[in-house]
């Protein structure tokens, strides 16, 4: 049994919270550069150039990439041979969120209650998903998710007869309705199968995959490519002002489902989908 202290976890989370908010992930930076190299719309080109400069300025000025420093979401993979000592795992993560938000001068974006709407003042709590895995490591995939893109997500329970075509039409509908709001060029996370909450969780997990890394199953990788072409055909474009690139990638995740069900969830990530991985 390996011991990892709650303090170590809190420190690592605090660092990660600051890091993701000031440094654009390399895969997204590369994807934005590719988008600029093929873009023909002048307004979109101008926005993409500003975004490239924004990433440099954020790192240089130690200022967040976006003022919406997001809600912190953690996907935790806890090795079965790990014991968290000196505190509770979830409390350690929330302590890290509080410390990182204070030290990184992040915006206070979380309210205590959805109806009363009083700010917690420290960006806690995070949304925490925990999965037990073999081994003695602790892996935390951490995302700072802004509401502009999160608010544009949708879920539907299709009839199995709707099939692949039904899934495609739903994803296109979600992206079309979102328009310029989720800060395109977006990453489109799609969860198909399982049940209601499993589909939603997979749609979020799909955003953690590096941009452009295809699904391991060739037929799903093919579907991702087809969907990306169809989405870019909508010509919503960077910031919704028109142009060639509406999405940088479509990532689809699937899971076994009920004979009567075809759940589909779509979670959109903005052009600044901030995530990082902590390994302890």
């Amino acid at each position: 049994m390996r011991s990892i202290s709650a303090e170590t976890i809190a420190k690592a989370v605090a660092e990660a919270v600051i890091q993701v908010n000031t440094h654009l992930p390399g895969d997204i930076q590369a994807a934005l550069e590719r988008a600029l190299s093929i873009e023909t719309n002048p307004a979109a080109r101008c926005s993409l150039q500003i975004l490239a400069e924004n990433a440099c300025i954020a790192a240089e000025d130690k200022v967040p990439l976006c003022q919406d420093t997001g809600m912190i979401i953690t996907h935790v993979e806890l090795g079965q041979d790990v014991r968290v000592c000196g505190g509770l795992l979830e409390e350690a993560i929330n302590q890290g969120v509080r410390d990182g938000s204070r030290r990184g001068h992040l915006r206070q974006s979380i309210v205590k209650d959805p109806f009363l709407r009083i700010n917690t003042g420290d960006n806690s709590p995070a949304v925490i998903h925990i999965r037990l895995v073999p081994g003695d490591c602790l892996r935390i995939m951490l995302m700072a998710k802004g509401a502009g893109s999160e608010n544009m997500g949708q879920l539907t329970m299709l009839k199995p007869a709707a099939g692949i075509e039904g899934v495609k039409q739903f994803v296109l509908k979600v992206v079309r309705e979102a328009g310029g709001n989720p800060c395109p060029p977006i990453i489109v996370g799609v969860g198909v199968g399982g049940n209601m909450e499993k589909a939603a969780l997979m749609a979020k997990e799909a955003l953690l995959r590096p941009v452009g890394e295809p699904n391991r199953r060739p037929e799903l990788a093919q579907l991702e490519t087809e969907m990306l072409t169809a989405i870019n055909g909508l010509k919503i474009g960077v910031q919704g002002l028109g142009g060639d690139t509406t999405a940088l990638a479509v990532h689809i995740e699937t899971f076994p489902t009920h004979i009567a069900s075809l759940p589909v969830a779509v979670n959109l990530g903005c052009h600044c989908t901030r995530r990082t991985t902590i390994e302890l």
Binding site: S47, I50, I57, P64, C66, D68, G148, G180, L241
Partner: peptide, 13 residues
């Protein structure tokens, strides 16, 4: 007027 979403560091200057 629309300005560039997600360019908060750039616009801050």
């Amino acid at each position: 007027l629309a300005t560039v979403g997600g360019a908060g560091a750039y616009l801050a200057r």
